[in-house]
Write a protein that binds this DNA or RNA. Sequence first.
DNA 1: CTGAAAGCGCTTACAG
DNA 2: CTGAAAGCGCTTACAG
Lengths: 339, 339
Amino acid sequence: MDSKKDLRTITRKDIAIEAGVTETIVSYVINGNRYVKEEKRKKVEEAIARLNYRPNTMARALKGKKSNHILFIADDIKGEYFGKLISEIDTLAYTEDYFITLCADHQDEDFVNRIYSKFFDGIVIGSASFPLYNIQRLIDAHIPIVLLEIRDYSSITGVYGLINTGLYEGSRRVVRTLYERGKRKLLFLDRISSSGVWSNLDDWRLKGFTDQCSVYNLEPVIVSGCSSEDELSAKLFDLLSSGYVPDGIFGRNDQIALVGMQACQKMGYKVPQDIAVIGFDNTRLCRFSSPTLTSVEIEQKEVARCVMEMMMSLIDNSSSFEKRLEVYLDTKMVMRESV
Amino acid sequence: MDSKKDLRTITRKDIAIEAGVTETIVSYVINGNRYVKEEKRKKVEEAIARLNYRPNTMARALKGKKSNHILFIADDIKGEYFGKLISEIDTLAYTEDYFITLCADHQDEDFVNRIYSKFFDGIVIGSASFPLYNIQRLIDAHIPIVLLEIRDYSSITGVYGLINTGLYEGSRRVVRTLYERGKRKLLFLDRISSSGVWSNLDDWRLKGFTDQCSVYNLEPVIVSGCSSEDELSAKLFDLLSSGYVPDGIFGRNDQIALVGMQACQKMGYKVPQDIAVIGFDNTRLCRFSSPTLTSVEIEQKEVARCVMEMMMSLIDNSSSFEKRLEVYLDTKMVMRESV
DNA sequence: CTGAAAGCGCTTACAG
DNA sequence: CTGAAAGCGCTTACAG
């Protein structure tokens, strides 16, 4: 039987026997926290390599070591944005020997108990709908938490990581861009949500939009509360028919911006001449629509890098921090034909 | 201190004390595998509810119970197709009290050792590039495995789950559809891969395409080996300039189909009049391109349901099966303007 | 320098 | 019917 081919559970005991040492020695070699005679160390290392041994993660975690699992909570797993982000994080996590567990943001009260089971070394929260109250509980329980700042988290106290992905500034820049092109009647298209969660002013995209509109003394219109693309189209139809015709549309994400763009086009308006449209996330959609869609890009690679870096810091030296870790990232606007 | 608010680690011991019973009793109540006097059972159940107790998953798993974690290996985490699928699976998994860990298909030899650590109750493989050899090893080690049949897995033996998502039949239908519209010079656009993994005839989409072309005695062209969208565009440019102009294009997925469509349009060809285009996966992209893209849809909800159902069967009664579990799903073609 | 032993939080065979 | 005890695979304080 070739041990390389046949998968069976190798335990520390197997290694001890194979290397002709005590089980204790094996542990110390693995953890590197005690001097072990060179000769023994070699034998153990060889045995580990030969038998393809990996210490049982669960047994280690039970003894207080890391589980090497990180939980990622997202409110829009389906979206291309999270797909890319998760993909980048996965790559980084893999080299750090971590696994990423992905979970939608379930709303029931039991959820937080379920994720707080000492199982995860840390939790990344990329969801606008996770209750602040529960985030605070997790932080208070000293679980390493990294927040993607989709909304305002300034009320959260304690030690945690905060990644400002530039949504607020990016949204302001959208308004600025539209304004500079002479657009004055701006329309914001909020998320489509079948679970009934829409943005409020805690949401950085919406807040950036309204704040910058205030700077210019504009009175923008916000379309919110839609639970499907068709509903959004219908609402726009009604709105434009009723006499209000915007000259600039900002969609909370590319998909929504494009639904808006198509609705306007169907009603005979030209993009960008009559109505300019800008999206968010710079997904693949932007390149295949016509006109192609101008969009704000979040630098996922950089976000992913920061997420992992912060998480590793919090996991490895959480006790050495006294306040939250913060990082501010920039977005960039990718100009295309829709503006 | 309100125990509902404060998150601390509650162990079986806490429950035993709270309920005034032995720790053993607590275990038996949780596992329901021994009669416990009604009165005691009640007390224990109340204590569990009051303290929000959840047995430590790792300790249970160490004793041979389930870890309630399933690993999902995908070769294209970024893609919208997997996003939707994962999202559906997550919903189902959550109600079954499972977590889904997501992992790209890493190519190093250590990968299989890493995932085989008794940590995962089962593994779903949705990747065309995971070596058959390693799949077989995992199955031989009696880990519940569910394969999404992206390629031909008929050589894999033993007990496992196989979900045929209808890629082969769907691809044949694409050819049939194009043929019925009078298209005879068909072009297949293979995946874009930066890691250098392209399709061979193990791949059901490609095989369906070529098989159906044979039925009609067509001599199709296949464009493969591109590592970026730009490279694919360039290749198409060269191909069409050199005199070969297809009248039907089948893209391995929507994105690739659209890259092909745009390249043709840039060269002055009309879609669908000169060249018809069909994609795969029916992603959001299809609805926003112009012309909108006809595409083959895989019923993700149904795939997700089958994945979880099979996985649960394999985990709970794996010993009672003697051969692989199979299910065949249908795709449907969503007709739009590109054909 | 190094081994035997306690213990992480559980499950369940074993012995009352 | 039910409790004390062994043990899952580890880590590391404790005692040589």
